[in-house]
Design a protein around this nucleic acid. Structure first.
Lengths: 136, 136
DNA sequence: CGTATTGCGTTTTCTTAGATAGCATGATTT
DNA sequence: AAATCATGCTATCTAAGAAAACGCAATACG
């Protein structure tokens, strides 16, 4: 299951993608509309900004807005950033690989199955983008 | 990612499936061979027994052994028992469904994508069984 | 300047994973 | 029946991580 944090990230990005381009939106507005705890959301948006997906503007008329085109942000990117690995096992992760202690991967049935699962998940998550989440 | 507990469950089941049928195996042996903390493994095996996958025998010559044929134990069943939901969101889970507070599922893009992901995962996890994990 | 807004480190709270301990219970052997 | 082997069960501990809240600094704008 995805953590609440990741779920919030998706909701916030969706909301921003539905707004007018380059129009700063208050954290408080997103928080209210999407029922996300304000301070928690603050951290999430900051992470997304640091990763280059969002831009922010301080002061009056400030807020957050998308830096990248929503069609250019695959869901897998958001997941890896906020959630971590997409794969179900470390020994099967492309971006967060960690070797299995006690199994020879070539001969590990579990490894093979989980690679298959991973590939199936990625095939969707790499191709669907934030733009696909909006009601537009 | 799967919890250690679920990973251990898979390893233990795999080990048992590789043994001679109906031959009790000591918890200690599984623990040693698969490098699983003994007492933790005890709990896991107990859960699997209660779920009807394993049988146990006390006393000398006792131990655990498979009750069901490994080809009859889909990986999804183990995951749901030990890990919980397979789906990435509660509002998309078949066995652990929980309604989303603030979204109308019919019009929620995230919901739709995650249903697709779930179905792709299940297509594999429902069809692969413990027997597919063994080196046999 | 003054106000609005994000930036960000810190702290708190809560939950869960993971691991530990100990005694009860049942089966087998002698 | 006694000794021994092995699981059954429950209670508890610790650490880590998720979720959320706090307070103030920094910045931008008018």
């Amino acid at each position: 299951m995805l953590s609440k944090k990741t779920q919030y990230a998706f909701k916030a990005l969706t909301y921003l993608a539905e707004q007018e381009k380059d129009l700063p939106v208050l954290i408080a507005e997103i928080s209210k509309k999407k029922k996300i705890p304000l301070k928690f959301l603050e951290n999430i948006l900051l992470e997304l900004r640091k990763a280059g997906m969002l831009e922010s503007k301080k002061g009056k008329g400030g807020g957050y807005f998308l830096k990248q085109d929503p069609t250019k942000i695959p869901l897998s990117k958001v997941m890896r950033l906020i959630e971590g690995p997409i794969a179900l096992l470390p020994c099967v992760s492309l971006n967060f690989y960690k070797k299995c202690k006690d199994c020879d991967e070539k001969n590990c049935g579990l490894n093979h199955v989980m690679i298959e699962v991973r590939d199936n998940m990625l095939q969707i998550l790499e191709n669907k983008t934030v733009a696909d989440l909006t009601g537009k």
